[in-house]
Nucleic acid binder design. Structure first.
Lengths: 246, 246
DNA sequence: CAAGTCATATTTGTCTGATAAATAGGATGA
DNA sequence: TCATCCTATTTATCAGACAAATATGACTTG
């Protein structure tokens, strides 16, 4: 269930440069409209050749972050051109401190993605991928008594649902669901104690999917995520999925 | 309402190479696991320098399509690593002939995206973007009597809904919604005649959003898309949104 | 003075060639 | 049989050169 991204791609010099510049862009250090330093200057700044910089900029351009033109230079694109669902972009985003609006938008995306994915998964409840949802759930149960990593288990559960949709266009959305969950983990007291209600909600989702009950699965996911959304709106203490602790 | 992509990026040599190779990959001409020709060979084949080929491959790698390593060469990644929501990738995909399963997955994605986007749009019905939904609807009405392009109007309507969600993560999904609609247009007799029921469904969506009725908007979109899905499943004649002609 | 035209300098675009680094696959040897 | 080493192949990176595009300001002209 590890990230499928090949590590070779991540180790290249040009990818590191893209990562460095990309991070500065999504964190606002370079604002939309700003002109980046010239390729030569960037190469000098990072101590790499111009070709490495150019390859990095091409990667950023392919994610809608920058646009290069002779003489004018390379400018940062408007935010509405950014590929916000790109896995790299999301990982660069995870380095920044989110505001409430940002967290709400993430939850709203989970709402769109996971409700429908769960419904689709229910429609193919015999699939191998559905068994992985149960496996993740068992892991969450084990985590309750300290026999597994609760964060990893929770992540796996939700990623498994998206994958179990069997829809090729859903798969890339595993990245944003993971990012959303990691933000939740970071800004909540996920590890503070037992969260029984949370587990029950997850069980309801699992059983609906296994039973092939698409509408039930949709409703169960919506219920869970609505709790998360409410918690984010209150800005209060919440567990890993955003539910309040008692 | 034109595509926001800067045309400069599209005209570069390395982008053309990426486009050529990317198209061959998503159409299966190069299968996952296949090793691409060497950078030198590709350069010779396309009559460009090695640097242009390398920049192209870096772009493809940043979309999860290929993975390059010394000695082994550049291989095509497994489909589950592809960024299927990337605008470029989708445009390359539009050149191929879809099977029914593919079309169904597109409709299912529209279901996930547009239902939630419409609900979110209803929550901010005063926003400027909501007015653009109405503008697109008026255009659809005008198209009924031949005073506007019905395809463009329909596209604008659905794109406007996604944009009106006000969610930064929704915006990139305009690409897949557009792609899905274009496939619908292509494989249906969109222009064969009047499709009154279609227009009524759109009006119901618009009114629900303007009224701030999130649940109503969700239901109206779901109803429309369910009709599309049914039509695709039957594989029968349908109009631009997949509804059957009478 | 206004507005269009043109020249120039700057920056990206592209090619070529060279060297380094990684590694798959075969050769070698215990 | 298996581990080790060698070597050829391919990508990775750099450097330098020239081409192409274009923003800017100077210049001209009405």
């Amino acid at each position: 269930m590890a990230e499928t991204v090949s590590l070779t791609a991540r180790s290249g010099l040009s990818w590191q440069i893209a990562s460095a510049i990309g991070t500065r862009i999504v964190n606002g250090e370079y604002a939309p409209g700003d002109v980046l330093p010239t390729e030569s200057d960037l190469g000098e700044a990072y101590n790499v050749g111009r070709s490495a910089v150019r390859e990095a900029i091409k990667m950023l351009a392919s994610k809608g972050l920058v646009d290069a033109r002779p003489r004018r230079g390379t400018i940062v694109c408007e935010r509405n051109a950014w590929s916000f669902l790109d896995a790299d972009l999301l990982s660069w985003l995870e380095g920044s401190a989110p505001d409430q609006e940002f967290l709400l938008e993430l939850v709203d995306m989970r709402m769109a993605i996971e409700t429908e994915a769960a419904a689709l998964a229910a429609g193919r409840s015999v699939a191998q991928e559905v068994k992985e949802i149960r496996a993740a759930y068992e892991k969450m149960v084990a985590a309750e008594i300290g026999q597994a990593d609760p964060i990893a288990a929770d992540l796996e559960f939700h990623k498994a649902i998206v994958s179990a949709s069997g829809n090729r266009f859903m798969r890339p959305l595993v990245a944003i669901v993971s990012t959303a969950l990691r933000f939740s983990f970071r800004y909540t007291n996920a590890l503070a104690g037992a969260h029984v209600g949370d587990l029950e909600e997850h069980e309801r989702i699992l059983l609906a999917i296994e039973a092939g009950d698409a509408e039930g699965a949709r409703a169960a996911v919506r219920s869970l995520l609505q709790s998360v959304r409410d918690a984010v709106e209150r800005g209060g203490q919440k567990n890993s999925d955003g539910l309040e602790q008692t």
